[in-house]
């Protein structure tokens, strides 16, 4: 068992969370990251869905990697991903209907999320299933982390709530505090991601170009 949790594997898992974050550093998978973050709940569900899909598609491709014919490699990867995304979308419709309505087409767009294809091509095709699983979970969580930060800021400032519960106390509103309607607009998510990257790079000096 000790081999399963060796230091290299820990590195594989933790690296994408900070130093090699898929959104802040590699700039992958922005498309679906922004539109679903106006509230915290869809952001969390989206983050978890992507984590599940990256992890399992990484494992499946890694198991199949020696059998996949080179010429249809990309197609095989796309089919595996598309099948997993379809399953996730069906499960969400059945067990989390409200969230699936909020996420609308963005669940389907996980297929074209560059994180997935990037990790499959760069990692799962060369590594064993367990490492690939860790890599998938790590990248998925790194993605989810940014989503949750953006969703947190936008819901707190835009609606005064978190996960639907009122957190900004009434007395603040009585003193003239107002929810910032701007935060509920899509444009603000871009600016918040910009700021997250700014903070991230201030702390990771070697990333600066």
């Amino acid at each position: 068992m000790s081999k399963l949790f060796s230091s290299e594997n820990k590195e594989i898992f933790l690296n994408p969370l900070n130093a090699n974050n898929p959104i802040a550093v590699q700039v992958l998978g922005i498309c679906s990251a922004l539109a679903v973050t106006s509230q915290l709940e869809p952001a969390i569900v989206m983050g978890l869905s992507v984590t599940a899909i990256t992890a399992f598609s990484n494992v499946i491709i890694s198991l199949l990697r020696k059998t996949i014919p080179n010429r249809i490699r990309i197609i095989v990867q796309l089919v595996v991903v598309a099948a997993l995304v379809t399953i996730v979308s069906q499960v969400l419709k059945a067990f989390a209907y409200d969230v699936s309505v909020q996420l609308s087409v963005y669940v389907g767009l996980i297929i074209t999320n560059c994180i997935l294809m990037g990790r499959l091509e760069a990692f799962a095709m060369q590594n064993g299933p367990w490492e690939s699983f860790l890599d998938g979970v790590g990248n998925g969580l790194g993605y989810a982390l940014i989503l949750v930060i953006v969703g947190f800021v936008r819901e707190l400032l835009g609606f005064g709530t978190l996960l639907g519960f009122q957190v900004v106390p009434q007395c603040l509103y009585d003193w003239g505090y107002q929810n910032n309607g701007m935060m509920t607009m899509p444009a603000m998510s871009l600016i918040i991601v910009g700021c997250v990257i700014w903070v991230h790079r201030s702390f990771n000096k070697e990333e600066q170009k």
């Binding site: 059998t67 080179n70 249809i72 197609i75 095989v76 089919v79």
Partner: peptide, 22 residues
């Protein structure tokens, strides 16, 4: 794994499995 027949059979098997699963 790069032969024509293998590629076609592989694709066909994959499509059938995925279609049934979904």
């Amino acid at each position: 794994t790069n032969g024509n027949i293998y590629t076609i059979v592989y694709a066909a098997v994959m499509v059938v499995i995925v279609a049934f699963l979904l």
